[in-house]
Design a protein around this nucleic acid. Sequence first.
RNA 1: GCGGAUGUGGCGGAACUGGCAGACGCGCCAGACUUAGGAUCUGGUGUCUCCGACGUGCAGGUUCGAUUCCUGUCAUCCGCACCA
Length: 801
Amino acid sequence: MRYDFAAVEKKWQKIWEEKQVFAAKQDYTLPKFYPLIEFPYPSGQGLHAGHPRPYTALDIVARKRRLEGYNVLYPIGWDAFGLPAENYAIKNNVHPKSVTEQNIKRFTQQIKSLGLSFDWSREINTTDPNYYKWTQWIFLQMFKHGLAYKKEMAVNWCTSCKVVLANEEVVGGRCERCSGEVVRKVKSQWMLAITKYAQRLLDDLDEVNYPERVVASQKNWIGRSEGALVNFDTTAGDVLQIYTTRPDTLFGATYMVMAPEHPLIEKWQNLISNLDEVRAYQEEAARKSDFERTEVAKDKTGVRLMGVNGVNPVNGKEIPIFISDYVLVSYGTGAIMAVPGHDQRDWEFAQKFNLPIVEVVKGGDITQHAYEDCDHGVMVNSGMLDGLTVEEAKKKIIAWLEEQGKGEAKVNYKLRDWVFSRQRYWGEPIPIIICPKCGYVPVDEKDLPLTLPEVESYKPTGDGESPLAALEEWVNCTCPKCGGAAKRETDTMPQWAGSSWYYLRYCDPHNNEALASREALEYWTPVDWYNGGMEHTTLHLLYSRFWHKFLYDIGVVPTKEPYARRTSHGMILGENGEKMSKSRGNVINPDDIIAEYGADTLRLYEMFIGDFEKAAPWSSESIKGCKRFVERLWNLQTMCVEGDAYSPKLESSIHKTIKKVSEDIENLKYNTAIAALMSLLNEIYDAKQLNHAEYKTLLILTNPFAPHVTEEAWERMGFGGMITDQKWPAYDEEKCKDSTVEIVVQISGKIRARLSVSATASKEELLRLARENAEVAAALEGKQILKEIVVPGKLVNFVAK
RNA sequence: GCGGAUGUGGCGGAACUGGCAGACGCGCCAGACUUAGGAUCUGGUGUCUCCGACGUGCAGGUUCGAUUCCUGUCAUCCGCACCA
């Protein structure tokens, strides 16, 4: 009985689409479930084997939930703004819009061939003006609430894209997208004040169910630290403020270091006797990217500012000031105090420049190296702090600094505000008008969307302006406030913008009055289960949580957090165990797999390949096992007989399998769920018997994994209706238990026998049975039993000498 | 340097709360059926010096008992902003 997967899969995909089987219901009285995958960027390469893994995983959950009676919203859309489409458009002289449309077409066809139960009626696209109208609207609200502001700052300039990148987008000193060299350049940028939400982004991690490693990376990224600002007087007369997490070690501060860009250096230029040397160092530092500057380097470079000294506030001692590029102007105050006795980096620096090293926490030998493990020691050489513990000293010195007006306690975050401008064409125009009289004026909300105009060339101007800047007709406008001549902002938003709120639009995608109706948001949010890649656990997740919290504050969304649960999938690697990429030539195209084996087999294999959360290499051999499973499941039709109750022979196994599969799906254990289904199938073939009740249950259980073959077999068996209308099977905990269990008998931890006993056997009975066993008795002959350990249902262990 | 993970047969991977290591699948071996087999079915398959031992990166420890807990160590992968 041949199984024609190609015809069957096409048939059911058509039926599902025509009958709108997977459209979320408008009935808000039903219990809801909202699973979400990260919507794809429709790249020119099309789908690769990695895409179906997360899509299938949540498809399995979505299908199971529907059978359990939930109203499920499993949506799909396109994160379609971004550089690759624009770069392709520039290269091939086509409109990025048409490139994007083509790519979406291909992705749609590919995704549909996987038999995923997406609600296509809610498809969204971030480049659709009806969508980005609301992206712009959110930006305007942020602007009106003072969260969007313009700032002149040193930014990462990609020399290849000719575009400014967020710090977060710079990877390894290179542009995350094009790998171009990144240098520093000063530019006026739109910024979003994510740092105002730092504490809440940290605190509310307690309210969500994220994997530990994701929580850790969010916390690390936000980087909260408690410390103090300390004001050092200088011989130049100015106050040089530093931030430290260790104010208790202030007596050990024997020099200071400033960032090369620190503004006080300009002020002091007439006092600095080695200005040439300082200037040369500054220039060198400016050429380096942040990454290069902060890269681990054995030799810490630096130049002393000759002519200006700092004054340590606790003892009035004059100490030298250096500039060094490892101190960043963007973190803390751009200046630090150095405590060489307790920081190995400072210690080495002090050795090199022959600076004093003072021990202020007892315990180490500072003549050999810095004593860094000093979080809980006792203070020495520290005047008023002597004899105190580190904890006490911190409190006392902060109180003293505050009293003296020399400093204050301060919580600091590593998190920086979000650079939101891009000098590119293919993004949402920032809806701001720059008026010579009124300053930055928001575009009137009724004029949204502010659509992207047609341009001749998509190339950035190369001088740091967007291609839009060349369009005089578009740029010149009137100020909505005073009616005078004004110009439009020509920067566009980063790709992160559209993806920061897309899950809200799915709730009500065709609404023209609001980003989504309050009613729809009340019902559907938060997202119940959001799965995505580990690569998005800091940037996208943090940005998205930030936007959501802002929308909560202004009363648009009803929940504090967007995603109740987050999970992450591992990558599918190429057959050689390396990351799949065009350049490595190890890309697996799902189209080829579907043509050869069918979508059900592909889905099963993607889930069976290994632990869902870990990376796993593709194997074109292993997938055959999943194809055999599909065919063996199909062939059961020929041996299936009438019967409306489970047979005694299979009953227990079926209940166990229902339990195992049900639980595994919830716990991301798709691989062992499939293994359990395979085991049951093997058992059926061994037993050479199967009735309708049993086959029905097996088909429903397998349906979320392999939806096409199960529907077709269901129909051919004449079971009535479609599987999508059935109920997820229930199991009876009592029937999952075996009546007899195998007990291991050990002697001093070594297995000597196995006994088949009643599951309810008492400890005494087990001991008796174990002793009566011939092999055990022989092995115990002449030995003294020191101890007897009995674990019911598991083992008996005689400790003997 | 910091942070996070991972290490189990020829391969992908299982193993609840410390209790039978290797489920399930691939591959391989043997057999059946076949003109044929890269199809299907049946059986076998951790290693070795094979009536017994040894085995979860390595070395210790705790325990009657450790893949699981502890200490140290090695290797690999991922992330990073020397964060003061």
